[in-house]
């Protein structure tokens, strides 16, 4: 039986990612959590396009059932957006670390209060 169990697992993974983003005090780890959050959203999308017993959406003679190509296209774009965000965030972290000497949220806030 195919059901929605995959969706439960994906949601659980998604929420782990979100939890890491919100709960971590370390900026770098937040970023890692963000990527987990995004990956699980990608899987949710792709799971929407699966057709039982179908082939990947590359037209071939003799095949008449294909998976839905649209989610694939969207997620290709989303993956690119994800890596772009990550690169930018890492550059920001490099600057923050150099300016403050720490990436811990509480420590950062404390440093600006003295200033």
């Amino acid at each position: 039986m195919n059901g929605v169990a995959h969706a439960w697992l994906i949601v659980a993974l998604m929420m782990s990612g979100l939890y890491i983003v919100m709960a971590s005090a370390h900026l770098f780890k937040k970023l890692i959590g963000l990527s987990v959050f995004q990956v699980s959203v990608f899987m949710l999308y792709i799971s929407l396009g699966v057709v039982e017993g179908a082939a990947p959406p590359i037209v071939e003679p003799g095949v008449d059932a294909y998976s839905n190509p649209l989610p694939h296209v969207l997620i290709l774009t989303a993956i690119v957006v994800g890596i772009a965000t990550m690169a930018l965030a890492l550059a920001l972290l490099v600057r923050i670390r150099r300016a403050y000497g720490t990436l811990d949220e509480a420590a950062l806030a404390a440093k600006d209060e003295d200033a």
Binding site: L18, Q38, V81, A89, L92
Partner: peptide, 16 residues
């Protein structure tokens, strides 16, 4: 810098 990073995290969560 931290302001931008915080915005990035919140903004990305929002976009997601």
């Amino acid at each position: 810098l931290p302001a931008s990073f915080r915005y990035l995290i919140m903004g990305t969560v929002g976009a997601t």
